[in-house]
Design a protein around this nucleic acid. Structure first.
Lengths: 191, 191
DNA sequence: TTTATTTGATAACAAATGTTATCGTCTGCC
DNA sequence: GGCAGACGATAACATTTGTTATCAAATAAA
């Protein structure tokens, strides 16, 4: 699982062994809740197989904010970093194979990594990238119509459209399931 | 201008003098463009007086994404960090007094700061906070109606409503000026 | 297999929001 | 003081999007 990351980092073999030993593998069925609303996040997950969504409850409706697939890491960052009760729920969509690491162990790794200028800079870059992603996502929201956003999703993240049930996609796009159906049927008609 | 920040950081007097000497003070009228679309951002601004908006051109309409006021720092982060042509425009709304620092000089400061564990951690925290802010902003967009977002703006950032022309606020909220007018008139009627 | 659940499409109607146009007010500028 | 441009309110109409309800198909569970 971790071999793909191995050559990206200049870390000694011993350290690498130590770090990977912090992770534990689990298999869970679809619709497994990995983090509940109000719970303080203590684990960060890496997805070996399956997909996960992050959502929150808004007056009984669930609103999906993110999708994650293979090789991505998932946590309620704010809850994880600040030990706040999580406002979001993390839940599998498909049966999944996951690796998780505790916050304590991750902190050990991070502390060490931050002392290595090279890796530290990469850490900063990753953080920036996350922020940029949010900015892009946000800009597309105020800039584009639901139809345009759906087309962009098909183009940029085809996995989502294929693997994720439509009502999750609708809530991710900020529209009703009915409206998403209408958007799709329009394209069928045009053909 | 910088004295307010002075005691927040444990930096020697000499270093502090050096750092502050990197900044230059300018006064500009309202509607001054500080960064044009397509330009690579080479300056970071701190606002002593006045307010600034960040916007981008979307098919001839301008969409405002952020407002900044006194003591806040402003830059097209992505352009500034990665030397990309900026997709956004930075423009004063009111006549303003600003301090700017070049990317080169800021990099000198950052490089030194990153070597001090205490300040480095604070830098990480600041980056996280930025990301969290975007997340919050984004969540309110998919969660709340324009009316709710307008009320939240009044409550959380009353300065914006008082100092910023209404059509900028409308584009910030993602609605037309007409619709914002309607929202406001509804509240007047209810009273 | 049979049944219950999930998922997706569609229609009919309601509500929200955008567009265009007009008008009045205010403000900065000559 | 008067004028041009910026700003904001409003009306009328068009379009988008949501809501509720119903049905069909796919899927999972018993």
């Amino acid at each position: 699982m971790f071999d793909q990351f191995r050559n990206k980092f200049s870390i000694s073999d011993e350290k690498w062994k130590q770090y990977t030993s912090y992770f534990e593998r689990i298999e869970v069925p679809a619709k497994t809740v990995l983090l509940e609303e109000g719970e303080v996040s203590k684990k960060l997950f890496i997805i070996e197989k399956g997909c996960i969504r992050v959502w929150f409850n808004n007056n009984g409706k669930d609103l999906t904010t993110q999708f994650f697939f293979e090789n991505q890491s998932v946590a309620s960052i704010e809850s994880f970093m600040k030990k706040f009760p999580s406002s979001v729920v993390i839940e599998t969509i498909e049966p999944a194979v996951l690796w998780w690491i505790s916050k304590n162990n991750l902190d050990i790794i991070l502390k060490e990594i931050k002392e290595i200028p090279d890796l530290r800079d990469r850490l900063f870059d990753m953080l920036f990238e996350r922020t940029f992603d949010y900015m892009k996502y946000f800009v597309s929201f105020i800039k584009d119509s639901p139809t345009q956003r759906y087309l962009a999703l098909i183009k940029e993240r085809p996995q989502v459209v294929v693997r994720v049930p439509q009502h999750y996609i609708a809530s991710y796009l900020g529209i009703s399931t009915v409206h998403l159906s209408r958007i799709k049927s329009k394209f069928v008609q045009q053909k």
